[in-house]
């Protein structure tokens, strides 16, 4: 089971993503954007990690989405292979038309706008630990394959452009009806709130992650690889003192492994 961890100029989470891939028992390697795109077909799954590909020039993910490796990934996606875009990886998948999955650019991850009590209280880059609620049934999406609907986990975000907006008529309805909304920002009790600080970036319907109609492509703004081990957790989390325990982000990587096993 071999995973390609994509690396574009400006990607900065590829090494910890690869550590997480290997820690759940998958093989993997970093795949540079300028390698022959044809080599991608020999992999069983793909992670597009976070960072600032091409320095976010024009807008986040726009330049990387035009690279030949992304066309190759589109072809691999049609074979049902898992593709997980984290943060900037999510932005690249949206700009490439792989998410929401119609082949067109149907949405944008726009600049963060934090609203509280109806007023804008903050804009732009923000990093924090957030609570996520898993919204789909198990096995719906490759990156949350082993998660129960309604399960909660706390992982970090760090981005300036994670505010999901769309002018495509009925896209939100489709995402909800087809169970393509995988993660929503919530409070520690799992309640969805539309305002900051629960909704950390102003994203429509507090969406933190979506998948393709087939479920194999997942994009999420939070970083599971930064909460893979318990020792990565913040000081206020008691699990930090139990470093042998897995962190909450591990389930994303375990999900991908299980998805590949089931679909092999």
């Amino acid at each position: 089971m071999k995973i390609a961890v994509m690396q574009f100029p400006g990607t900065n989470c590829e090494h910890e993503t690869l550590v997480a891939v290997k820690a759940v028992g998958m093989d993997g390697e970093i795949f540079r954007w300028n390698r022959s795109a044809g080599e991608l077909s020999s992999f069983d799954g793909y992670f597009i990690p976070g960072g600032f590909s091409y320095q976010d020039r024009v807008r986040a993910g726009a330049i990387a989405s035009k690279e030949p490796v992304m066309q190759a990934l589109k072809e691999e996606a049609t074979k049902g292979k898992p593709i997980i875009g984290i943060c900037n990886g999510f932005q690249i998948l949206v700009e490439a038309g792989l998410l929401p999955g119609t082949g067109k650019i149907d949405m944008a991850l726009a600049q963060n706008v934090m609203v509280s009590n109806g007023k804008i209280v903050r804009r732009g880059y923000y990093c924090d630990w957030v609570n996520l609620r898993h919204e789909t049934p198990p096995r719906r999406c490759s990156g949350s394959f082993i998660m129960e609907r309604g399960s909660l986990f706390k992982i970090p975000i760090a981005h300036g452009e994670g505010n999901l907006v769309t002018s495509t008529p009925k896209l939100m309805e489709m995402l909800n009806d087809e169970e393509q909304v995988v993660f929503r920002y919530c409070d520690k009790n799992g309640r969805i709130k539309t305002e900051f600080p629960v909704n950390v970036n102003g994203s429509t319907e507090s969406i933190a992650g979506i998948c393709s109609p087939e479920g194999n492509v997942l994009g999420m703004m939070p970083h599971p690889e930064r909460a893979f081990f318990a020792w990565q957790l913040p000081a206020f989390d008691p699990r930090k003192q139990r470093p042998d325990e897995p962190g909450p982000g591990r389930r994303v990587f375990e999900s991908v492994k299980r998805y590949i096993e089931v679909n092999a």
């Binding site: 807008r59 035009k66 944008a108 600049q111 002018s167 495509t168």
Partner: peptide, 9 residues
């Protein structure tokens, strides 16, 4: 094709 994302620009 490149300079805008029509959902925000």
């Amino acid at each position: 094709g490149l300079l805008i994302n029509p959902h925000k620009d």
